[in-house]
Every structure is written in C-alpha cells, then in structure tokens.
C-alpha cells in the first residue's frame, strides 16, 4: 500500500513537473490578464499536507512584495478543498490586502461553495460565477 502511494505521488509530481516545466510553480498554473493574475489549482483534490504547504508558499509568492496585486483564484478544476488549504488562502488574502491587493474566487462547484458559506468566509472572499466576472469585480 505504501509502495502504491509512493508511485502514485511520484507519478503525480512528475506529471505536474512536466506540465509546469516552464514555470516555477507545481501546485498552481499562473496566467496574467491585464493587471490581474489568474491562478488555477493543479490538484483536483487539494488534501495532501505536503502539497498544501507547497501551495501556501506558491500563493504567497504571487506579488506579495508588490502593491495593489489583483488575484483571481479559479476553482474550476477542484473537486475537494481541505480546510488546511483554506487557511493558506486566508493568509494570502491578508498579506495581499495589507498592500492594497484584492482576491476574487470563481467557478466553484456546489460543495466548495458550501464550504465558504458554512464558514462565512464568503464575507472575506468575494465569489463569482465566471473568471471574467471575477476580473471585472477586482477592477472596482
């Protein structure tokens, strides 16, 4: 079982590395639209503690040193998002906000949307249907 897990993790990591070979990120895909950074999560199930730690570091590298950074987090690929991963989003949002930045979330499935609703984190994070809606809202 441990061997199976090792090979599965190794395969996932190798695939992610190949896909992101031109990028410094493993857990996210980063695109830029105008003045907004669009972040897509690589993992369908964001649950592995080591991957969540790495995800947190990658999120914190998104213009943390810059002023007024705008970030859209696109959940279209995400089927599960653990509360430990949410904690990383909270830390990132606080750091960005302290420098005048903003974060918008979009394209969540019902269960992920519920997760933000139950915890009332949808007060801190504005949630939008589409990526474009999120980009437009961040310009306000």
């Amino acid at each position: 079982m441990a061997e199976q897990r090792f090979y599965r993790l190794a395969r996932t990591h190798l695939t992610n590395r190949l896909v992101n070979s031109m990028s410094k990120y493993e857990c996210i895909k980063l695109e830029t639209r105008g003045n907004t950074k669009i972040v897509k999560f690589v993992d369908e199930r964001v649950m592995d503690p080591e991957r969540i730690e790495l995800l947190g570091k990658e999120l914190l590298s998104l213009g943390i040193e810059e002023e007024n950074t705008r970030v859209v987090l696109d959940f279209s690929h995400v089927r599960f998002f653990s509360s430990a991963a949410i904690n990383k989003l909270i830390v990132m949002e606080k750091r960005l906000r302290a420098r005048g930045g903003k974060v918008g979330l979009c394209q969540m499935n019902n269960a992920v949307r519920d997760l933000f609703g139950f915890t009332q984190l949808d007060i801190i994070f504005r949630i939008h249907e589409s990526e474009q809606d999120a980009i437009d809202a961040l310009q306000e």
Binding site: N87, K94, F118
Partner: peptide, 15 residues
Amino acid sequence: VEIASGRGVLLMKEF
C-alpha cells in the same frame, strides 16, 4: 472569521 484555523468541528457538523 479571519483566523486561519478552528473550523474543523463546524465543518463536520455542517457536512
């Protein structure tokens, strides 16, 4: 609400 922990018991109850 902005504290980055302490939601586990609430989430178990809600889900």
